[in-house]
């Protein structure tokens, strides 16, 4: 079952993720324009794009733990997952700046004045170099070790994103905390020393994985 899944994942072409992601982005925009998102489509789009960006970031963060602990290998699609997080974030910020605030001076004033927007923009800044180096050529140019070090910026980015979501909610709403818990959980899973999970990482049998775990 797991091997079939992993084989299927390897067969998914990268462009299919982009097609689905951008298709969804466009569909949401069309729905907003046609009134299907309710009387205040700007806010609805802003929130939908922002939430999708966070969901893709969390999905990207789950790739390594899934491989280590469940033997599910989404690594072939991680670049596309990360890039879609970036593009939805661009959509989120674009709708906010162009359709909601409608002027550069307002955008700047909000960034300076509202801490939850400041940290959101900081999250976007963290992702910019990652998006810019998400090509094979960039990996070769930087070298694997440096590229991996640079891409650790995804941790502050996703942390800031989760915090931004908690900060903007009114009242004690549950969802932002669920996302934050998922982020913390995935980071903890990643922090567990490599040795303990090495057998699982190679897609070994469940028994082997549990033996490895009990040794750790």
């Amino acid at each position: 079952m797991r091997d079939r899944l992993n084989r299927a994942v390897r067969r998914v072409p990268g462009w299919l993720i982009y097609l689905a992601g951008f298709g969804w982005m466009g569909w949401l925009f069309f729905q907003g324009a046609s009134g299907a998102l309710g009387p205040e489509p700007v806010e609805a789009l802003e929130h939908a794009y922002g939430l999708l960006a966070l969901q893709f970031l969390v999905a990207g963060l789950a790739v390594t733990p899934l491989r280590r602990w469940a033997g599910i290998n989404l690594l072939p699609l991680r670049r596309q997952i990360g890039m879609m997080a970036f593009w939805f974030l661009c959509g989120h910020v674009g709708v906010w700046a162009l359709l909601d605030l409608q002027s550069l001076s307002r955008v700047w004033a909000e960034i300076v004045k509202r801490p939850y927007i400041t940290i959101g923009m900081a999250g976007l800044l963290c992702l910019l170099p990652l998006a810019a180096t998400s090509t094979n050529a960039a990996i070769r140019r930087l070298g694997g070790a440096r590229w991996r070090r640079l891409h650790r910026l995804v941790y502050p980015a996703v942390g800031l994103g989760a915090l931004h979501y908690i900060w903007l909610a009114k009242g004690a709403q549950l969802e932002p905390f669920l996302y934050a818990a998922a982020v913390v959980g995935l980071l903890v899973l990643r922090a567990i020393p490599k040795r303990a999970g090495r057998r699982g990482e190679s897609g070994d049998s469940a028994g082997g994985r549990f033996r490895a775990l009990s040794r750790g």
Partner: peptide, 26 residues
């Protein structure tokens, strides 16, 4: 100001114009 956003302006619900971007230009 509300600590998290400005109260200087407001978005008027349903004030968007016609056309494709009408609803999106509140």
């Amino acid at each position: 100001s509300h600590p998290r956003w400005s109260q200087a302006e407001e978005r008027v619900i349903g004030s968007g114009g016609e056309g494709i971007f009408g609803r999106l230009s509140v």
